[in-house]
């Protein structure tokens, strides 16, 4: 995919290029280059199939990574385009004009990660979580365990002992 990288670099400012497999690469671009790059990949490089669009929460870095994965069937290869956006007030340009199906992905990202895609059809409509009032649950700081403990009752009577602690209590309670 070296050839593709060379060609793309001629008109787009490419960030980190990761050659994951012979037929799969990931490349980071700035958000302002995304739309143009995707259109170029679709129209001139044969990447006509939007495989998926999803986000990765890099909570520690205060960033979301958006991954746009595209497939060129004829060439049997894929490219994942990464865009890093700030977590705070996260929003991104919609690509539903390139692929109508992207609206579904963007609607889900809006709901699950709280990333807005202004202009994307029905982006504010509830998707899976009808009636959800908590923070977007796929964010890393949403604690599923805590949520489950608060929302659901544990089955009564369950207790488990740690072997090491149990043996200490039974065999050498004073620690010596």
């Amino acid at each position: 995919m070296q050839d593709l990288q060379t060609r793309l670099a001629q008109h787009t400012d490419l960030g980190e290029w990761t050659q994951q497999r012979a037929d799969l690469a990931f490349v980071t671009v700035a958000r302002e280059h995304l739309h143009g790059l995707l259109r170029h990949l679709r129209d001139h490089e044969g990447f006509t199939h939007l495989v998926l669009l999803t986000a990765v929460d890099w909570l520690e870095d205060g960033q979301f990574q958006l991954t746009y994965l595209m497939n060129n069937r004829a060439a049997a290869r894929d490219i994942g385009v990464r865009v890093l956006i700030p977590r705070e007030g996260a929003d991104m340009d919609s690509i539903h004009d390139l692929w109508p199906t992207a609206a579904t992905y963007q609607r889900e990202l809006r709901e699950m990660f709280g990333i807005d895609f202004p202009g994307s059809p029905r982006v504010d409509e509830e998707f899976i979580l009808e009636g959800w009032r908590d923070m977007p649950p796929y964010r890393r700081d949403f604690d599923t365990l805590k949520y489950a403990q608060e929302e659901f009752a544990e089955r009564p009577g369950r207790v488990s002992k740690d072997p090491e602690t149990h043996m200490k209590q039974k065999l050498y309670p004073d620690g010596a």
Binding site: V159, S160, P163, E164, H166, K170, L171
Partner: peptide, 17 residues
């Protein structure tokens, strides 16, 4: 799975749980 005390005394290499 819970590790529970079934009344076996702990011994070397066996927590009894």
């Amino acid at each position: 799975i819970d590790m529970i005390d079934v009344g076996l005394a702990p011994k070397d290499g066996d927590s009894g749980l």
